[in-house]
Simulated scan of single mutants.
Amino acid sequence: MLSDRLAHLTRTGVVERHRRPGWPPRVHYTLTPNGHRPGTVLQALWDCGMQTPRPAGWNNSPCSTASPPCCARMTPATGRPV
């Protein structure tokens, strides 16, 4: 469950939990320095993969049913496409 995973990440120091006042109760999570640490490793893996020759027909455009599988580059901080 999501709440169990967030509790585990909080206990292990990957994220910090911030409760916001008011009703209904609201909680905000932020990455700690330990949570940001894997970002450099993941970026290095991504860069290495991007230097690997692509098979015929491969493209880096957004995925669709008409194109072969592809990946959108994600920002480490948000996990959203660049």
Rank of each mutant, 00 (worst) to 15 (best):
M1N: 02
M1R: 00
S3L: 01
D4K: 00
R5N: 00
R5C: 00
L6C: 01
L6Y: 02
A7F: 00
H8I: 03
H8R: 10
L9H: 03
L9C: 08
T10G: 00
T10H: 03
T10R: 01
T10Q: 05
V14Q: 08
V14P: 05
V15H: 03
V15N: 00
E16F: 11
R17M: 11
H18G: 06
R20I: 10
R20A: 12
P21S: 13
P21F: 08
G22T: 05
P24R: 01
P25T: 00
V27Y: 01
Y29R: 02
Y29F: 14
T32E: 06
T32P: 02
N34L: 15
N34T: 13
N34C: 10
H36D: 07
P38D: 05
P38R: 04
V41S: 11
Q43D: 14
Q43A: 15
A44H: 05
L45I: 11
W46T: 10
W46Y: 14
W46V: 08
D47Q: 11
D47P: 03
D47M: 05
C48T: 11
C48Q: 12
C48A: 13
G49E: 04
Q51C: 09
T52P: 02
P53L: 06
P53W: 06
R54N: 04
A56E: 14
A56R: 14
G57I: 06
G57P: 02
W58R: 11
W58A: 15
N59S: 10
S61L: 15
S61K: 13
P62Y: 07
P62V: 08
S64L: 01
S64F: 05
A66W: 13
P68I: 06
P69L: 06
P69M: 08
C71G: 15
R73Q: 14
R73F: 10
P76L: 10
A77V: 12
A77H: 13
A77F: 09
A77I: 10
A77K: 12
T78R: 07
G79C: 06
G79E: 08
R80V: 15
P81A: 08
P81V: 12
P81T: 10
